[in-house]
Design a protein around this nucleic acid. Structure first.
Ligand code: ZN
Length: 238
DNA sequence: CGCATTTGACCTGCGC
DNA sequence: GCGCAGGTCAAATGCG
């Protein structure tokens, strides 16, 4: 169902072929402005769709992981309301906490190329181990709170198996001190879940991600090269 | 120097 | 006990 060919059409005319009468230039400028505007609107639309899709996928993965990780031991207060009511979505959009062990699972959106596995969550961590796990190619990193041993909190961070830009962090324990980060930083780090795009205002990191993934995509490179060369060829016939 | 990270060794629980 | 997988330790290394 996915259209693989990008069908790139570079609407570009080499400058040395244009006639430079002012009227023509003005027309062209207007035309290009219009086109830019249209493209911008399309981009925001695509971004919105992309965001909501990603959020949806994240939710699906969380629910599946939750079921898979504790199929049997559902004790009191487990997330039953999630299964019964499909209407409200916000209440476990971000973090799933299981009161059982003081173990908290949190999913964080991040750049797939970010190999550092460092999640800025307002606390300072000291990495003390990294292991490859059986059924996930990406390694799992182990952290202790840097106030240890006075603060016993640990966390594990591992990339999600089927969503490479989703990061699963498992916290265990509660901090006995305050977060070092100020309010603004925790806000931005928590705001990983994407909200609808305001027109004309893009999420820079997301745009950068998309650009990166396009740059790394061989199909895109190929299509781009073909589009460029065909355009040049076509214009060289004059 | 004083920290954090890296990384192989080591430990521990579990199924056979 | 043995082997495996996950979790931890600690010596070496890196960095400001
Ligand atoms: Zn702490």
């Amino acid at each position: 169902m996915v259209e693989t060919s990008l069908g790139i059409d570079l609407n570009v005319t080499p400058f040395h072929l244009t006639d430079d009468t002012p009227k023509n230039n003005e027309d062209k400028l207007n035309q290009i402005n219009l086109e830019n505007k249209k493209l911008k609107e399309m981009l925001t639309l695509v971004l919105d769709n992309h965001n909501s899709l990603q959020n949806h996928v994240s939710k699906l993965i969380r629910d599946r992981d939750l079921l898979a990780s504790s199929p049997n031991k559902r004790k009191s207060g487990e997330c039953y309301e999630c299964n019964t009511s499909g209407s409200t979505e916000n209440h476990h959009q971000r973090s799933l906490k299981r009161p059982n062990n003081g173990v908290k699972r949190v999913y964080t959106r991040t750049d797939p190329s970010d190999t550092s596995l460092v999640v800025k969550d307002g606390y300072q961590w000291r990495k003390y181990g990294q292991k490859v796990t059986r059924d996930n190619p990406s390694p799992r990193a182990y952290y202790k709170c840097s106030f240890a041993p006075s603060c016993p909190v640990k966390k594990k961070v591992q990339r999600s198996l089927d969503e490479p830009d989703l990061l699963l962090t498992i916290y265990e324990g509660e901090h006995n001190h305050k977060s070092t980060a100020n309010e603004h930083e925790t806000q931005t780090s928590k705001a990983r879940f994407n909200s609808p795009t305001e027109l004309g205002k893009f999420d820079d990191t997301l745009v950068e991600q998309m650009a990166n993934s396009l740059r790394r995509n061989p199909d895109f490179i190929e299509d781009l090269a073909e589009a460029i060369s065909s355009k040049i060829f076509e214009n060289d016939l004059f």
